[in-house]
Every structure is written in structure tokens, then in C-alpha cells.
Design a protein around this nucleic acid. Structure first.
Lengths: 333, 333
DNA sequence: CTGCTCAATGTAAGCGCTTACAAAATTATT
DNA sequence: AATAATTTTGTAAGCGCTTACATTGAGCAG
């Protein structure tokens, strides 16, 4: 594999000159530029990014931590971030934390050890404390979908409380009074925020929240099925079901169908996230849009602006507002 | 950020000794190891992977090229590959080629420039010629889901022809004689192979293949809808529909429902790939299993064995057999 | 006590680049 | 034509590690 040295020899110039034409940041006469480019081409020269990084202390790559590499939600996030950064000549190094403190920690340390120029984190398991330390460290960090006190400028979040509110309000507006709720794991901030919103909507409508109307799931599909079973048993009067994410809504739909409910005639369902497959479900899922796309984009632009001095084409905002996506699973009572 | 030099100073030993305890590949006395480890801990030392790579010519990272970062199929692939490699202390650098020759090429060059120790490619757009060159180059390469002549030892593929055969055979076995087919873009080998299998099954059953029974789509959901419309118009007698992937099957199901067909009573549908969401669809999709998980795993093990001399726990195989996943969209006629 | 062996450690030369600074070549000014 | 100003190119010192080779020192046989 050809090195810069061989190129310089072939072109009859010094290393520095070759480096200059590669980086295009210093003046080089047309004639020598041509010579160097020819030499590069004929040698099939490909700069060694590792060596470049070591020497320049710049890797041109941004670390991205997601919880999982699969699933619509993260697919969307990864795609978006990659697209924006790649357009600007930056690269993304993706790692998964699997919602496990140790593994998230390791993944972040890995990204740091690779000397990423910045980190975009969808971190669910590490502590706020750790994130604060990170931000105070020497590498720019932004956090997606998690609000950390004192770190507002580095966080990009959707208003989950408002989202939960909107979901339940939509059901109430459709005439429902007995509304079941399948929550995410409540130790997660987003899950508990969504639940708070649900309660606020109930309260505002003068409906009392009953403990039996709620089931705490884990955001996975199977929890939707379990939640459905739980509600049938402990809160049989429900006519609408709000789920804290679309996966659980899908599970609940399956279980509901198996239990003989017509959706939405006999049971209305509202999801949360608006992941891609929510529109493939039958009936198409009414849900709350979680602007993960917009957040990923924003995070990427933040990095471009703060780290690479590339001005963001859109103003940087940190709080995103959810909205109801009306489809076919919410019926009027 | 502490360097190895500072650690060596703090521990009162030489650089080389610190390096040795880091890598654990040479003998170091217990006493000095302890001193060094203490120094590392107190300095919060974190080795610079970039410098390590440059010096050792080993990055401990494997490049993975996928077509897209979203979608169940690639999510599954990325997850699997990452899991196997991470278990063995290796890292994955993921890039997307977007099924575009130029972008795939660039993505691969990026991985090479990062000096990945090996490449796992789901490359759809670059030429066979280019792949051959790559394999002949100085970096180990494996190709997933694409068979390149003379590169059998580096390819991991599912028998697409057989899969197409099985899908159509399943429909025939259920009594169908007029079977529509929505194909993938035929310039792609997997799409044309699946179609060949379809034709073989028809022939074997003595059914003549009619041009109007087929629609060439692009593997996206919308093509399923278009295909459905096309068939209703040009091949209205069809009672079963075989789709070259699950996305198109999903689109076809939506369109069929809108057109008033009951599935599977009035129209049977068979998909291909068995992606995660195929079981969330309603009715649950009967499909052909595309063992992408197994292929990703195998590719990762191949790399471990050939590049890192870590013995694969399972024998390396290159051809994977598809199988029918019976669910609810194929009905007997 | 001498000389030898072998384990433990140190020395120093890179890995392939970038970049401050110095030197040379070119152009402008008088 | 001589000098100054400016552009172009070269020199060499790192970036933070690994590793071949050299050195040191301890343990032991004679």
C-alpha cells in the first residue's frame, strides 16, 4: 500500500507538498499539484486515515451510540445522522449500548478511544453524573432523547409529557372515559414522563386515574400482549388503550384480535413514536409522532456547527414537540 | 488526556513496560505490573486506539457495509455481526452504500482508509470485477448475500432460487394455479434468482408462466401496492400472490385490503425474507426465511478465524437454505 | 567468586502523516 | 538591475504507540 513518501518520490516533491495537495489547505502551484495528483493516481494512493488522525488530532468521525442496531427507531436515527454528516464529509462510527450500564459505558469509552471528534449519544443506562463528566471532558457530546439537568444545551428531547398528554387527550376527545394504559419501564424518564402526561389529560377531563388501568411493560411487543391480558382481567371496562410505544401497541393489537375485539369498533388503540412499521399495521396505527428524525438531524447539525465550524442550515433547537398522527385505530365512542 | 509517557513516568518504568502490561503479551513482574496499573488508574489513562493502530498495524475493527442503516433486514445483520465480534473484543465500523455504485465504492474506500482488519460487505451496486480486486488485495473481505464467481470462499449466500421455488411451491401445494408474482429489480441477482425459482416451481407443476402474471418492483413497500394494481388489471384471475420480499408483500396486503380482498380467503400472499415485522402484520405473513442472522454470524466467525486466528465454534458454511415459514396469509383453495 | 542463563526491563527506531518554520523561487517595486 | 514582498516548496519535529534488540540483574552451576 503506497505511502505519502512514495508519492512524494514519484512526483519529485517533498512530503509536505503531497500533504498540502491532499488537504488543499495551503497554496500549491498548478504545475506541482498536477504532478502530485498524477503520482497519486498512478500509485493508487489512498491516504492512511489512521496516520492522518494521529498527526492532526482530528478523525473526521463522529461517534454515535444507540441502544440497539435494529428496530425502526434506531434505524431512523442512524440513517439521519449518517446522512447529514456524510454530506459534510464526516463519518459516523456506530456502537450499541444495549441499555446496559456497563455496555453503554464500554461503548462510549470505545468511541473516545477512537478519538471521535464528537459524540452523539442515545444513552439510557449510564448515570446523569457520568454524562455530565463526559460533557465537561474534552470531547463535545450531545445527548438524544434524554434530558439531563444542567446539560440543556447538549440535549435534544421530545416533550414526552406532552406526548402522553396528547395521546390520552385524543382518546378522550373521541369520547372514551375508561382508558387503559400500557407504560414503559418507569425507571426510564421518557416512560414516566409519558405516563405523567396521560394522568394530566385524565385529570383535566375530570377522570380519575385508577391504578388497575395501568400496566408497566418494557417497551417490547410482548409487553403489549401481557398488558392487554392484564387489563382484560383487572380493568375490563376499558374502551381505549394508550400504549407508551408502537411496539407495545402492536402486541396489544395482536392480543386484542385474538381475544376477539374489533379495532377500533370495540377497542381503540393509540401508540407512541410513529415508527415506520406503525403504518404497516392493520388497522394503521394512530400514534404520536416522536420526531426522532428531526432530533437526529439537529444533533448532527449541532456537531457540524460546534465541532467543525460548519454553519447549521437550520436554527438549533433543543425541545421538540410531539403531535398526534391520526390513522385508523382510534374510533369515536 | 494522559499518554503512555505520563503513565510510565508516574509508575517509574519505561514506555515499553507500560505497553507490555497494556497488551499482556510479554512477561512483566507482578510488582511492576501493579505499579503500572495503579499509575494508569490514578491518571485515568485510556490508550489512544489511533496511535495503537498506527504502530501495530492492527485496528481490531471490522468494516461492515450495508445498503441502508434502517430496515429490519439490515438491523438484523448489523446486530448479529456486532454481537459476535464484540464478544471477541473486536469492533465494527458500519457504513451504508445506499445501493449506489459510487456511494458503495466510497464507503468501501472509507473502510479501507480506516485500515479495518477485514471487511464484511453487503454490496449490491459495485461490480463483480471490483469485488474480485478487493479480495485479491491486502485486506480480507467477505461478501454477504451475493455470489460472485471465483469468490465462493468469500461469499455467504442463501439459495435464492430455491427460496423462490419453495414460495411458489407452497402456493401450488395449497391448490393455487393462477399465481401472481411481484419481483424485485431484475438487475439484482437475488431478485432474478427468486424469479427463476418461481418459474421452476410452475414448470414442475405443469403451469405455464404468463408474462402478465408478473410485475417487476423495487423491493419497496410501494411497489407491492403498484404490483397489486397491475395484477388486478392484467391478470385478474390470480388467487395467490408471491412477493420477492416482505416489504412488497406488506404493500400488496394493504392494497388488497383496500380493494376489498379478504386475506387469505380470497387472496393468498407469500413473502420472502421473514423480516421481523412480517409477524406483526395482520394476518401474519407466510414467508420464506432468509437466514440473514445465520449468514451474518457466519461471516463474523469467518473473520475471527481467518483474520484473528480465533477458531469458529461452528463449521464455516457458505450456502444457506431457505425454508417456508407457515403463518396466516396462505390459504387452501 | 566467576561465568552463564534467562527473565525483566529499557532504548530507540519506526508506523504514515501534519505543520511550524526555514529556505528558495518567483513576482513586484523602484 | 537590485531589493523587497510574496508565493511556493522543503526540512524536520512531532502525534502516541509497538516492538526488535540491547542491557541489566538475579539465580545458579562449577
Amino acid at each position: 500500500m503506497a505511502t505519502i513518501y512514495q508519492v512524494s518520490e514519484a512526483a519529485g516533491v517533498s512530503l509536505a507538498t503531497v500533504s498540502r495537495v491532499m488537504n488543499g489547505n495551503a497554496r500549491v502551484s498548478e504545475r506541482t499539484r498536477k504532478k502530485v495528483e498524477d503520482a497519486m493516481a498512478s500509485l493508487g494512493y489512498q491516504p492512511n486515515a489512521i496516520a492522518q488522525s494521529l498527526a492532526s488530532n482530528r478523525t473526521n468521525s463522529v461517534g454515535l451510540l444507540v441502544s440497539e442496531l435494529h428496530g425502526s427507531y434506531f434505524g431512523d436515527l442512524m440513517s439521519t445522522v449518517e446522512q447529514v454528516l456524510k454530506q459534510n464529509g464526516k463519518h459516523v462510527i456506530i456502537t450499541a449500548g444495549h441499555v446496559d450500564e456497563k455496555r453503554e459505558h464500554e461503548a462510549i469509552e470505545f468511541l473516545k478511544s477512537r478519538r471521535c471528534d464528537a459524540l452523539i449519544l442515545h444513552a439510557e443506562a449510564v448515570s446523569d453524573e457520568y454524562l455530565k463528566q463526559l460533557v465537561d471532558g474534552n470531547i463535545p457530546v450531545v445527548v438524544i432523547n434524554r434530558k439531563v439537568d444542567d446539560l440543556n444545551d447538549n440535549c435534544f428531547v421530545v416533550d414526552n409529557e406532552q406526548g402522553g398528554y396528547l395521546a390520552t387527550q385524543a382518546a378522550i376527545n373521541a369520547g372514551h372515559k375508561n382508558i387503559g394504559y400500557i407504560s414503559g419501564p418507569l425507571f426510564k424518564k421518557d416512560a414516566s414522563d409519558r405516563l405523567s402526561g396521560h394522568k394530566r389529560a385524565l385529570e383535566e377531563a375530570g377522570i380519575k386515574f385508577e391504578e388497575t388501568s395501568m400496566f408497566e411493560g418494557d417497551f417490547h411487543e410482548s409487553a403489549g400482549q401481557e398488558g392487554m391480558l392484564h387489563l382484560q382481567k383487572h380493568y375490563p371496562k376499558f374502551t381505549a388503550l394508550v400504549c407508551a410505544n408502537d411496539e407495545m401497541a402492536s402486541g396489544a393489537m395482536t392480543a386484542a384480535r385474538e381475544a376477539g375485539f374489533d379495532i377500533p369498533e370495540q377497542l381503540s388503540i393509540v401508540g407512541f413514536d410513529n415508527v415506520l412499521f406503525s403504518r404497516y399495521l392493520y388497522p394503521k396505527l394512530t400514534t404520536i409522532n416522536n420526531p426522532i428524525h428531526a432530533m437526529g438531524e439537529m444533533a448532527a447539525y449541532w456537531v457540524l456547527q460546534h465541532v467543525y465550524n460548519i454553519k447549521s442550515p437550520i436554527p438549533i433547537e433543543h425541545l421538540f414537540v410531539p403531535e398526534v398522527i391520526n390513522r385508523d385505530t382510534l374510533g369515536n365512542l
